[in-house]
């Protein structure tokens, strides 16, 4: 029975990987200029029309890659945090890093430095995420309880949200207010290789910190004391997940804005297929996150609302009903 679960988990991973690559392909072909499969590949390898090559290499590829990185980060960290906190309601926002990155970005817009340099918003956002992580570590380092961690995260999140409101309150012009709101709704539009170079290494660094945490998360299913007696170093596990999340989600939010729901709901989707074992959720959650975010990004290009449909809005509008459906289907086993 255990063997068959292992096999079906790998089948699911394979399926999701193929799905993610296909969605990436669709994302490359679909947009203001629709390309055929042949045109896309010709553009990708620089062998076709110069205009098409420019569209594929400079506009679509960074967007596809960033979308996959961001989606995978949100899915993976969502699953890891739910495992660490042993709470199906946890999401990457719970440690306060996303809200703080948002505060950093809004501050850059408020101060007007966003107009000076394209790097200003992501750098300010990263600074926000960094400060939040430092405060979190200071508040939660005294003891190893997850409750302290959650409460510290909620505190930091509330403070950052208050800061965002303050910036909006004092925004000097309707234009900058609109910029703030738009940024907070999340987007992959007009992202370049520069954004990818800025965020990519930090995102991957965060992932590397979290490699191999699954076993500890599995042990935590039996409570922290039993996990300790199974040989797990809980303090190390906790900081690997928290710092890995802070780094990868902080970088993601810095370049993509706030994208809700992926981190919360993706692990639930995966559970519907392969059960609740925390370790087994990690990889499929990353792949499904990448898949769903890429699909959502394709939807933002539909000619709805004058092309102003934002990524965070799509993930929430589609994600929430799907989430409710999944909870309805699996509520029996959650008791």
């Amino acid at each position: 029975m255990i063997k068959s679960l292992q096999t079906s988990a790998w089948m699911l991973n394979l399926l999701l990987l193929v799905g993610m690559l296909l969605s990436g392909l669709m994302s490359g072909m679909f947009g203001q200029v629709n390309l055929s499969l042949a045109e896309f590949f010709a553009g990708l390898f620089g062998q076709g029309d110069v205009g098409i090559t420019l569209i594929v290499q400079e506009l679509r590829m960074p967007r596809i890659l960033l979308g996959m990185l961001a989606g995978a980060t949100l899915g993976y960290t969502g699953a890891a945090l739910q495992g660490l906190l042993r709470n199906p309601l946890a999401d990457p926002g719970v440690i306060g890093v996303s809200a703080s990155a948002g505060f950093g970005a809004v501050t850059a817009i408020y101060l007007g430095v966003a107009a000076v340099s394209a790097y200003a918003v992501p750098l300010f956002a990263m600074a926000g995420a960094f400060v939040a992580t430092a405060i979190l570590m200071f508040l939660a380092s005294r003891d190893s309880s997850v409750l302290t961690l959650i409460l510290a995260g909620i505190g930091i999140s509330s403070l950052a949200t208050a800061g965002v409101s303050l910036m909006m309150n004092f925004a000097s012009s309707p234009m900058s207010l609109q910029d703030m709101v738009m940024w907070m709704l999340g987007s992959l539009e007009n992202r370049t290789y520069d954004d990818l170079m800025l965020a990519g290494p930090l995102i991957i660094g965060g992932w590397l910190l979290m490699v191999g945490v699954g076993q500890g998360l599995n042990a935590l299913s039996l409570g922290s004391e039993t996990a300790h007696t199974l040989g797990i170093d809980l303090n190390r596990l906790r900081w690997r997940v928290v710092l890995g999340t802070a780094l990868s989600v902080g970088a993601t939010v810095s370049v993509c804005g706030a994208i809700g729901f992926i981190g919360l709901m993706v692990p639930h989707f995966v559970r519907a297929f392969i059960g609740h074992e925390p370790k087994r959720l990690l990889l499929p959650s990353a792949l499904m996150g990448g898949l769903l975010l890429t699909l959502a990004d394709i939807l933002t290009r539909l000619p709805i609302g004058h092309g102003q449909l934002r990524l965070g809005v799509v993930t929430a509008v589609i994600g929430a009903p799907m989430f409710i459906y999944i909870i309805f289907k699996t509520r029996e086993s959650m008791r």
Partner: peptide, 23 residues
């Protein structure tokens, strides 16, 4: 002891093998 996730009985018992496995 708590079991925080609805795992199958067999998967729960298998958690006892963690000290023998690499991550």
């Amino acid at each position: 002891a708590p079991v925080h996730w609805p795992l199958t009985a067999e998967r729960t018992v298998a958690l006892g093998r963690i000290p023998h496995l690499h991550p």
